[in-house]
Design a protein around this nucleic acid. Structure first.
Lengths: 136, 136
DNA sequence: CCGTAGTCGACAACAGTTCTCACATGCTCC
DNA sequence: GGAGCATGTGAGAACTGTTGTCGACTACGG
């Protein structure tokens, strides 16, 4: 059974008023700062539960930190600027279909996928270094 | 000055004979197992140097571990069975084009992407658990 | 062969995350 | 509205991947 606790509600509420991606630690610090008493472990648990429920969307930063954001129930992917970290949501029925088809061709079922696109956004490109490494 | 040491050469060589993504720890273990004497720190340093040189491509796993692969290998994606771990390599010009296009539409340059497909392979599906969660 | 500065490697330190476990509390049943 | 109890909480320890430290080592130019 899953209980509806003060802490869980509070973490959920934090993401209501926050835009963009935020780490568990950041959420914890923010809650503490605003007078909410909550443990770090609890924040991690709550956040993971929300991800499991599909309420939050999570990705990993380049530094290995997990960051979360309220996500529309709609499936989408991220276009991340590797310089400033700016993130755009993108949707691609094309990709969804492709992934499902390819998986089906190999006999896979219960298929899901993760896709992240990394690049340098226009602002960073015109502002900053003229070139970047071209991995992959 | 950058020296050409036995260790650096060895790490580089490991990626010559390895396909796909591999973690620094894995490389270290593999080298040790094959009789190479090398420190973990050195592997990390070597791998990062190779990434800086554009010889290796690095991404983060969902678990927060950094994994690396030789850049020159043909770009492809993985279809992973979440039950037995079996991995198939798949290619998709469709996806490549889609990713590039979407990124371009948002003004992003120097675009790369990561894509993993997860599912239950035919063998595991017929043999085992009837259902699985449907994350993200 | 020498000098030296870049490198190595064992280990410590660090950050993010997960685990532990005694205690607290939401839910269900009455 | 309670009693009972499974589930949640939270402080801190433990764990994992990664980076820093620092004395010893060694590749490389001369």
């Amino acid at each position: 059974m899953i209980r509806n606790t003060r802490q869980r509600t509070a973490v959920n509420a934090v993401f209501d008023e926050l835009e963009g991606f935020h780490s568990a630690q950041e959420v914890h610090a923010r809650m503490r700062a605003s007078g909410d008493s909550i443990g770090l472990s609890t924040v991690y648990r709550a956040v993971q539960a929300l991800v499991d429920d599909g309420e939050l969307d999570s990705i990993r930063t380049d530094a290995g930190e997990a960051i979360y954001r309220r996500c529309s129930t709609r499936h989408h992917h991220h276009l991340v600027c590797r310089s400033c970290g700016r993130t755009e949501e993108v949707e691609g029925p094309t990709v969804e279909r492709w992934a499902d088809r390819v998986a089906a061709e190999h006999g896979f079922v219960d298929v899901t996928h993760t896709l992240e696109i990394f690049g340098t956004c226009a602002a960073c490109h015109s502002a900053g270094a003229p070139s970047a490494d071209q991995p992959g």
